[in-house]
Design a protein around this nucleic acid. Structure first.
Lengths: 189, 189
DNA sequence: ATATTGACCAACTTGTTCATTTAGTCATTC
DNA sequence: GAATGACTAAATGAACAAGTTGGTCAATAT
């Protein structure tokens, strides 16, 4: 894999998380990556595709971290909870996701909105996979995996993001308890 | 209560739900209400206060409808479910709430955003009241009523509004089942 | 040949001006 | 004294100029 390609991705990722997608110019990226602007276009057909590439690797990274949080000796409930906690901790602490979510909220840049929507969809798909595994093993009762993953994800957003808009933030401990109490009890076999 | 005041409220409500808050002018409201523009300001100190007044009566109306859906002979689970269903059916079918929610989404008019936020807060407070009643009666186990009401509301938004953005809408029947399965099981005493 | 480049261009933003519109007031009318 | 609509200051937006920026491509370097 080309060295220049890596430089470009790295420069763009840094600039996106520093200034946001809209405020990053391709001239800027070229300068930071020590390449001519034209070179960027031999690897990526547009600024948007460059963003997509970067977000794709973020998605892989998140999935990887979530997988690392899973411990086969624990129950499905414990594991899905740990995976979701990882996913949202990442979202909250990673410079780039913070900046991009801000940009969607404040400016609504369409390209960024789309790409963050994809990130959400992929996280839901990830959880869905875990649910299907657990169903196959008989760890949880049969259910619509898409719907269940969707609800788990939305509940985590409610607890991690929306609650804080009008109340004191909840500790991860408290979120885990609530998640268990409200959502998982309904899935026990 | 003044007849003119009623005319003004009625005219404004009609214009807001027809054209939205921003696109409604006070001249327009005065004309529709058959009063001079100055008269509006003897009853309301600003356009924003006029909107607040109208939304306040919407809130009362929704609470009233939700109360009507409650049947003392049924369980808490049944009733909270019926009340929430009423609230969201109203939101979805009432001309004015539809138009105002659109306006928040598309233009983000601050006055409208604030007033719709208040509507949400009041609906959560309403549900919270029902939860506290049920706790007092021992119908459900003890819990943080604010947090529980918040989660119930967010779950209903997820099922009624957000799911439809990427999937086929769910029937009210299906929503009731899911709500019961996922959220209420965790509250049984 | 192939990879790289940066000057170049069309499309899009941004800044500015100026005419129109509109929320809110108040002297006048009924 | 309640109601009004002409009036005003502020906000909006249309129109235009100036400046940026994403993307291309002929020229250059390897």
């Amino acid at each position: 894999m080309s060295e220049k390609r890596k430089q470009i991705i790295e420069a763009a990722a840094k600039s996106f998380s520093l200034f946001g997608y809209k405020a990053t110019t391709m001239d800027q990226v070229a300068k930071m990556a020590n390449v001519g602007k034209g070179t960027i276009y031999t690897f990526f057909k547009s600024k948007e595709e460059l963003l997509e590439e970067i977000v794709s690797s973020i998605i892989s990274e998140i999935k990887c971290e979530a997988d690392a949080a899973i411990d086969q000796s624990l129950s499905f409930n414990e594991n899905v909870q740990r995976a979701l906690q990882r996913i949202f901790t990442f979202r909250k602490e990673h410079e780039l996701t913070i900046k991009l979510l801000q940009e969607v909220r404040d400016i609504g840049t369409p390209a960024v909105r789309d790409v963050m929507k994809r990130l959400d969809r992929e996280m839901i798909a990830y959880v869905r996979g875990k649910i299907e595994e657990a169903m196959a093993k008989g760890e949880i009762r049969s259910c619509d995996s898409e719907l269940t993953a969707f609800l788990m994800f939305k509940m985590y957003i409610a607890l991690n993001v929306e609650w804080e808009k009008e109340h004191e933030p909840l500790s991860q401990q408290k979120i885990a308890e609530l998640f268990h109490l409200y959502l998982l009890k309904g899935l026990s076999p």
